[in-house]
Design a protein around this nucleic acid. Structure first.
Length: 226
DNA sequence: AGCACA
């Protein structure tokens, strides 16, 4: 059903396992305006992500109004020209051509080169994210919009739970599957603290963790790997 | 805070 979106997926996660060279600062441009935003993000949206986001750019309208991460990834070339995307740290563009000693990159990613890869995943990393902080009335469609642009995105499952304090609104939990844990980690980073409701900046902040028990059980069916 | 689907 939701398979129409598969064109955004990118099966080249193999690349994810290149060696971890230079620890570059991650360009996280406009997260700066989020006071409480946890900056523990050790991960960098890897080249594969940028590649896939490039695909999205071609795919059209998805890049309209989303978050800084997207803006960063989608039009980073243009964005670099306009504002220094390096978060001001160095003003160095994302496609900084410095190439680490080994170039494990293959031609598929070369446009954006650089061998910057993800930080080691935390031990509890899984390919499913557990998301809290969604407004009770949010829809699966909405949530999917938030996660779909990330490489490796599979699907979103919403779960409505009753609040412990009676009378309170039920709240919504959400599980988001990715193909690999590192892809999940990228989304986790990028969306941690994401302001889901732009009109309610205080309350609707996403909080993401790795799910304890990863694993899609719905549309994916018994077709576990590919 | 809170972790479901099989």
């Amino acid at each position: 059903m939701a398979d129409g979106y598969w064109r955004y997926a990118d099966p080249r996660q193999q690349l994810a396992e290149a060696p971890p060279p230079a620890s570059l600062k991650r360009p996280r441009p406009e997260y700066g305006d989020m006071p409480g935003a946890p900056e523990i993000l050790g991960y960098y949206p890897r080249n594969e992500d940028r590649t896939a986001l490039g695909i999205i750019r071609d795919a059209g309208p998805i890049n309209s109004s989303y978050d800084p991460y997207l803006r960063n990834g989608l039009s980073y070339v243009a964005a670099d020209a306009g504002r220094s995307i390096g978060g001001g740290v160095s003003g160095r563009p994302v496609d900084d051509p410095r190439v680490p000693g080994h170039a494990g990159m293959d031609s598929r990613v070369i446009g954006y080169s650089s061998g910057r890869i993800e930080a080691p995943l935390p031990p509890e990393a899984s390919n499913t994210l557990f998301v809290e902080g969604l407004p009770a009335d949010c829809t699966r469609r909405e949530v999917s919009h938030v996660f779909r642009p990330f490489v490796g995105f599979q699907e979103v499952r919403l779960v409505t739970k009753d609040s412990k304090h009676a009378g309170r609104d039920a709240f919504v939990l959400c599980f988001v599957d990715f193909t690999t844990p590192s892809q999940a980690a990228v989304a986790l980073d990028a969306l941690q603290g994401y302001c889901f409701d732009e009109h309610d900046r205080e309350s609707a902040r996403l909080r993401l963790q790795f799910a304890r028990f990863p694993g899609p059980r719905s549309s994916a069916g018994p077709r576990s790997r590919r």
